[in-house]
Amino acid sequence: METDIPAATAPSGPKLERRRIREFTKGKPVVAVLLGGAGLLLAASMAVVFTRWLISLAFMQDFLNTYPGEAHLPEGVPVGIPAWLAWQHFFNIFLMVLIIRSGLQVRAEKRPPSYWSPRWNPARKISINLWFHQTLDVLWIVNGAVFAVLLFVTGQWMRVLPTTWEVFPNALSAAVQYLSLNWPTENGWVNYNSLQVLAYFTTIFVAAPLAVITGVRMSGVWPKNAKALNKAYPVEWARAVHFPVMLYFVTFIIVHVALVFATGALRNLNHMYAAQGSTDPSAYAANWTGFWILFASMAIIMAGWAAARPLILSGLARAFGKVSSR
């Protein structure tokens, strides 16, 4: 049988085999994503069905009655979310989004668009994206230090730090209730459920310090000639921990945002952004103040995302050092 492809241009041997492989694998990633999504949906549905059957059993009913999902708070815990905490919440997410973006750029870049070097050490050059990432890190650390001080000075720490062992069985209870889609009644204005407490505790007091410690080890401020110190804390350890910590933050943000909108968006947004709330767990704020503050904050974050490009970053970096193309 004759072929339509001229003999001089018809692929043969390895070239023909590579073309066949490309044609065979074309569209496979899409199929894999669809099949993976369907598998996750099926697994989630089965988990929900199993959990709903589980909580219908007598011993689980007793467990849920004993541990409703939130632990008692100590005496003197402040009620509500102060304005400084609402501001910290916005500034933190603004920095986190740009830190994650710049971190992924640094991880993926092969040839930086430009380089930055400090005035006091022109021989030390880093990519402009790494300069931006580390500058954001410094701002995030300063913001975190202010947050930690205010957290303990105002007593807000008692809302996000486990103060009793009852937090753990209550966290399990809250997780079971979430998984059964019969979500626990909560009012973050007064008391977070125990699963939230553990998540906030892990984020503030475990993940954030790990991000700082590993980030400092990989940065230029770490003493490179301190052999004993470098041997005790190898940079490979920092790299092995830093990226998974970033993945934790991404996962936390996704789950956090999903639950904010799924468990009473207006009420939660008024708590978090407008510092407005009620001691009544069934009360939903009728106004849209928190939503519009969120809308404005998202506009600022998108503007920051759009502005974080080499031309603008180079202009900013020149104020703190020297920028060169190589």
Rank of each mutant, 00 (worst) to 15 (best):
Q196E: 05
G13T: 04
R101S: 10
F261W: 00
W183S: 02
A317E: 06
G215N: 03
P82Q: 08
G39E: 00
M1D: 01
W140A: 14
T25M: 08
F90R: 15
A71V: 01
Q61G: 09
Q88S: 11
A199R: 07
G264W: 03
W189C: 10
A238Q: 05
F243I: 15
Y178K: 01
Y200F: 13
N191G: 08
V255E: 02
N287E: 14
T9Q: 07
V250N: 02
I312C: 02
A303Q: 05
R309I: 09
A43D: 06
L195G: 08
L34N: 08
R119V: 10
Q156H: 15
V190A: 01
L247I: 13
W292G: 08
I141S: 06
L269M: 12
L172H: 06
L313E: 14
F90H: 14
F252N: 08
V106H: 04
T3N: 08
L210R: 02
A175G: 13
A7S: 15
N225Q: 15
T185I: 12
H271L: 09
E236N: 09
A226G: 01
L266D: 09
N191S: 11
V260Y: 06
D4T: 08
L95Y: 12
G304Y: 03
R18H: 14
I254D: 01
A174P: 02
N187T: 04
L73F: 03
V167T: 13
S180V: 00
A262Q: 11
T163M: 12
A265C: 08
Q134W: 08
G144R: 07
R107H: 15
L139R: 04
T203K: 00
G155Q: 04
A47F: 07
P29Q: 06
E109V: 11
N170Q: 03
P11C: 09
V216G: 00
T164H: 12
P310A: 06
V142C: 12
L151I: 09
L313Y: 02
M272Q: 08
E186C: 02
A275N: 11
A306E: 06
A286E: 09
N143P: 03
N268F: 04
A175C: 11
L247T: 09
E23M: 00
V160L: 05
T185K: 13
A303W: 13
A306R: 10
L229D: 02
K26T: 12
E109W: 00
F205D: 10
Q276R: 15
Y248S: 03
S282P: 01
Q61I: 09
V197M: 02
R119C: 03
A123C: 06
A319K: 11
P112I: 10
N170L: 00
T289Q: 12
R309E: 10
A145Y: 09
R101E: 14
Q177H: 06
L64Y: 04
L136C: 12
G36Y: 01
N129I: 00
N92R: 14
D62Y: 07
V250Y: 06
A43P: 06
S114K: 10
I93S: 14
V323G: 00
T185P: 04
A44Q: 04
K322F: 13
